[in-house]
Amino acid sequence: MNTLTSAPTLQVNEEGYLKNYQDWNRDWATEIAHQYNISLTPKHWDVLNWLRAKQAEGTALSVRKVGNSGIVDIKEFYALFPGGPLKISSRIAGIPKPASCI
């Protein structure tokens, strides 16, 4: 799966994560969010922007870090992006999938 038919065409990897951080735009993010049945609210955008800023700084990310961001706590993060909040929000934010070293 290298392209997403319903989203504006941007290059993604085999798991649907954006290849180039700079390519990201709000339309694309909105489309990806729809695939998870998520309608993006201002709170969602605050989280997405925070994730993008942290990624640009070169910081390692985790759910707990988002929970300590001052934007949402962990429970609220789960409510915004149900299932796997960091992997889903990372995909929408156009940053790499959360991963271990292997």
């Binding site: 992997k87 271990s100 070293c101 292997i102």
Partner: peptide, 16 residues
Amino acid sequence: TPLPGAFTKPKATKML
């Protein structure tokens, strides 16, 4: 694990 799997990198997942 809180991660999406025991292995998370594509090649490592495939190999291990």
